[in-house]
Nucleic acid binder design. Structure first.
Length: 488
RNA sequence: GCCCCCAUAGCUCAGUUGGAAGAGCACCUGACUCUUAAUCAGGGUGUCCCAGGUUCGAGCCCUGGUGGGGGUACCA
């Protein structure tokens, strides 16, 4: 490695000696590579376009020398194009400089367009300028970069070498942009609420703690924006959404990153049924826009996003996939053990049900499926069903076995909400560290009156996984969490 | 947290039974004015992840650690 870098540094020194600035300030570009390739697609072999002067810039990705001429490919943000540099055209001095250029260097190129006899649209270089000298070697051109650790730690190399990785992140950007357009069209207002919260609320999860020096107090990175968004509903903002990071101090897996992006939205005067419709419409529209079809494939599984999507209650889903009828079961733990699950004795029945669901139902939910009617105890911020106070008006959406969304009709009775948070407090005292905390200001807000409303959360990372056919959440997060690298 | 797997040149990888560290690309020197994994001739550039141990001898075997991946637990 040192050998490679030493050689490049020597080249850099030589450039400076020859008064060639290796890091100039700007370069005027008239075309992107993709524009050129599109515009001159119909050129005939060998044909040269008169008056086709272009200037473009990019990184040198390959070089093929032939003595007094040479081909190279340069890559810009839109793609790659071949450039052809000839001794006759650029002159002796420039050609000498060209030969010293390295793969990885940025150059600006002026020239005219022609098609080679092998049929590739190429820029005949009339002049070029070094725009940035590269001092480190890039990975090999053919096999590229595969080492997952380098791909994640040095994502910039991954983006240079692997076009499909770049494509994934372009699509991610497109998806969030489309979500915003969709919601803006429906009169939702994009807002921002605190990332640092004195009381972390809105979810059952362990928070990260930080400290504010001037205030002499601990603050928590938010685990959800829910309680702040509801305050805005109280304040009269009837449709609000936020797309931003949540932080949860939990394990890392192919579906979990400690910080992840969540769309959370609240709609006044609506219930969870309305949000099922909204969710369906949103995801179907985005899939159609991004992939051009509702028939998609995720990890080898064919998925049809044609609406409407199916619904099952939690109980009937468990019955369907395990033949277990929860209502007729006296000892749920015993039944779970019979199914082969390891169940600890101190688990609550609702948690056992959750385990059964995760183990036997979730892996089967490949086609879009809304699971509804969750136990009320698991949803302390949700409104109960009219005909059954033990169930919450809540749904989760699964596609391709990914849990993508969670929504409920929001509890807006301040008295009931206080009771439920007290229950959570009791759970905390009993040792459940991630039970919800009491938030007096939130309750005070509800006491002023919150209109009926429903709230929805969509895991953006997982949605992007689905729509980019990515097996791991790390594939859709530019800089996934890693332990610090050893200092060299 | 626990279990399994992986770590060799800049990159992608091989390395037999424990017996002199290898290939392709990249890189360096030279030839070549339509190549595209350009070609031709020559050159190996290495803390075999780290620290111990076994052995006459360790990239290979053993112990511990570090980093990464997968699973599982916790967890929407």
């Amino acid at each position: 490695m040192e050998e490679f870098i030493k050689v490049r540094h020597e080249k850099l020194k030589r450039l400076r000696k020859e008064k060639i600035e290796p890091y100039p300030h700007r370069y005027k570009i008239t075309y992107k590579t993709r524009e050129i390739l599109g515009k001159y697609k119909k050129l005939k072999i060998g044909e040269e376009v008169r008056g086709s002067q272009v200037s473009l810039a990019g990184r040198i990705m390959s070089k093929r020398g032939h003595g007094k001429s040479g081909f190279a490919h340069i890559m810009d943000g839109s793609g790659k194009i071949q450039v052809y540099t000839k001794f006759d055209v650029v002159g002796e001095k420039k050609y000498g400089l060209y030969k010293k250029l390295d793969i990885g260097d940025f150059i600006g190129v002026e020239g005219r367009i022609f098609k080679t006899k092998t049929g590739e649209i190429t820029v005949l270089v009339e002049d070029f300028t070094l725009l940035a000298k590269s001092l480190r070697p890039l990975p090999e051109k053919w096999h590229g970069l595969k080492d997952v650790e380098i791909r994640f730690r040095q994502r910039y190399i991954d983006l240079i070498m692997n076009p499909e990785v770049k494509e994934t992140f372009l699509r991610r950007s497109r998806i969030t942009s489309l979500i915003r357009k969709f919601l803006d069209k429906k009169d939702f207002l994009e807002i921002e609420t605190p990332m640092m919260q004195p009381i972390p609320g809105g979810a059952a999860a362990t928070p990260f703690v930080t400290h504010h020096k001037a205030l002499h107090r601990d603050l928590y990175l938010r685990i959800a924006p829910e309680l702040y968004l509801k305050r805005l509903i109280v304040g009269g903002m009837e449709r609000v959404y936020e797309i931003n990071r949540n932080f949860r101090n939990e394990g890392i897996s192919t579906r979990h990153n400690p910080e992840f992006t969540m769309l959370e939205l609240y709609q006044a005067y609506a219930d969870y049924e309305d949000l099922m419709e909204l969710t369906t419409e949103l995801i179907a529209e985005i899939a159609k826009e991004v992939l051009g079809t509702l028939k998609i494939e995720y990890q080898g599984k064919k998925i049809d996003l044609k609406t409407p999507w199916k619904r099952l209650t939690l109980k009937s889903a468990i019955k369907k996939y395990t033949k277990l009828d929860i209502d007729k079961t006296k000892n749920i733990k015993k039944e779970a053990k019979k199914l082969g699950l390891k169940i600890e004795e101190d688990l609550a029945d609702t948690q056992v049900i959750d385990h059964i669901f995760k183990e036997f139902v979730e892996p089967r939910l490949i086609q879009p499926m809304f699971i509804t009617d969750y136990p009320r105890e698991l949803s302390p911020l949700a409104k109960a069903k009219k005909n059954n106070p033990n169930l919450a008006e809540r749904f989760e959406l699964f596609i391709g076995t990914l849990e993508l969304a969670n929504a409920y009709s929001e509890l807006n009775d301040p008295i009931l909400q206080r009771e439920r948070l007290k229950e959570q407090l009791a759970l905390r005292w009993a040792g459940s560290e991630d039970a919800h905390m009491m938030d007096e200001d939130f309750l005070r807000a509800l006491e002023y009156g919150m209109p009926p409303c429903a709230g929805l959360g969509i895991g953006i990372d997982r949605l992007v996984m689905l729509l980019t056919d990515s097996p791991s959440i790390r594939d859709v997060i530019l800089f996934p969490h890693m332990k610090p690298e050893k200092q060299q």
